[in-house]
């Protein structure tokens, strides 16, 4: 159970939108994390540079917040085997579905893409069903 935090959520969301907007306006690229990640692993070396820089920036930004705030809360309920399965599903699913929360949820919907709207509804739906089954059917305490 976590507390409702509308202010930090809104400030963080605005920052994410600004980051995605800057990449689009400065470089003409869509800031979809799974897309950038997939391409960084498959593209020729010359195309990797900006992608790796963007991806390395993510933990740098989080580290900066952690320094200012003291620490970041990371409360993980899943066991190691479940985390491994979850990671494989996220990696596989985002490549098959051409996007994740950022690519479809933030950048795609901003473009008015029907594919992205559909994908976002589907992953939010399957995510909610998964949590429902884990917590309320299987009765995990998480």
């Amino acid at each position: 159970m976590t507390e409702f935090t509308p202010v930090s959520a809104t400030v963080g969301g605005l920052t994410i939108g600004l980051a995605a907007g800057l990449l689009l306006l400065l470089r003409g690229r869509v800031a979809g994390i799974s897309g950038v990640l997939g391409s960084a692993l498959s593209q020729p070396l010359g195309e990797k540079g900006w992608r790796l820089a963007f991806l390395i920036g993510l933990p740098m930004g989080a580290a900066a917040v952690s320094l200012v705030a003291g620490s970041l809360v990371v409360d993980i309920a899943a066991s190691t085997p479940v985390l491994v399965a979850a990671g494989l599903l996220v990696g596989l699913g985002t490549q098959l579905g051409s996007g994740c929360t950022s690519g479809h949820g933030v950048c795609g919907i901003a473009r008015g893409s029907k594919r992205s709207i559909a994908a976002t509804l589907v992953f939010m739906g399957s995510g909610a069903i998964t949590v429902f089954v884990v917590r309320h059917v299987l009765g995990a305490s998480s």
Partner: peptide, 26 residues
Amino acid sequence: AGAALFGVGWGLGGFCPGPALAGLAT
């Protein structure tokens, strides 16, 4: 199908790709 699989993984682990990479800093 991809979005559905991703959602299951997201629900199980609580991480999507961006936060997973950012969270490495912790």
